[in-house]
């Protein structure tokens, strides 16, 4: 099982390293939107609530471009059937989940300093900001991975993924914005982080149970 997970994860990273499709698109999108927001703000320092909101909107839409790709690529290139035969469903899901977590963490690691630099953000509690960002990213990745598998099977790609993901991702996004605002203002984020971790745990557990039904064809 662990070998299958490691093998799948390595394969996904190799393909991504070779093509850099998901990360290139996501990072370009993040850079463009951050610059656009900074340009339109015209150097004015925004309120903590607005800064947190814009940060998560940029992060969410940048990530949406890359997260679905992990399953749609398998269906488009015809490798899904091979993967179904060679790896257990749980191993495939775990590898894809870990890959998506890594992708969104990389995106967040690039966006955060870029955003702070261009929008003149002064974070009162950097450790709380990091905790809120990591917990929020984990919640987004854990809820979108299983939905990416559903969308890949549905055939209609981009728009459907955003439509079905948005309502599911909205509660963690909402809480993450509140926690980030609190971190920027120097307040405690523990309640928000606990909510995000609980949400991630619930979604990962349900995804594990459902993935076999989504992935295996009768």
């Amino acid at each position: 099982m662990l070998d299958a997970i490691a093998g799948n994860l390595l394969k996904d990273f190799r393909i991504e390293f070779r093509r850099r499709f998901a990360l290139n698109i996501a990072l370009s999108f993040a850079a463009i939107t951050t610059l656009a927001v900074s340009l339109t703000a015209g150097g004015v320092r925004l309120a903590a609530q607005t800064q947190a909101m814009l940060f998560w909107i940029i992060l969410f839409f940048s990530a949406m471009n890359g997260l679905a790709h992990v399953f749609t690529r398998e269906e488009e290139e015809g490798t899904a059937l091979f993967l179904r035969v060679t790896s257990p469903a749980a191993a495939v899901y775990t590898a894809k989940l870990l890959f998506n977590i890594a992708v969104i963490f990389i995106i967040a690691a690039v966006i955060s300093p870029l955003y702070a630099f261009f929008l003149n953000v002064e974070v009162a509690s950097p450790s709380a900001f990091a905790a809120a960002t990591c917990a929020g990213c984990l919640a987004i990745a854990s809820s979108t991975t299983v939905l990416a598998a559903i969308v890949a099977k549905a055939g209609s790609r981009g728009s459907l993924f955003t439509i079905i993901s948005f309502p599911v991702v909205l509660p963690p996004l909402w809480i993450a914005i509140g926690a980030t605002r609190a971190a920027i203002a120097g307040n405690t984020v523990a309640e928000g982080v606990v909510f995000l971790l609980a949400f991630s745990g619930a979604l990962i557990a349900v995804s594990y149970m459902l993935f076999g039904h989504i992935w295996i064809e009768e």
Binding site: S143, V146, L147, I150, K153, A154, G155, I164, P167, V168, P171, A202, L203, V206, S207, L210, H213, I214, E217, E218
Partner: peptide, 19 residues
């Protein structure tokens, strides 16, 4: 029209119920 329609829509409902 897809044979997986029931399974995939049921899976989405279960995810929705979790949220």
């Amino acid at each position: 029209g897809k044979p997986a329609r029931g399974r995939l829509s049921a899976a989405y409902l279960v995810i929705a119920m979790t949220v």
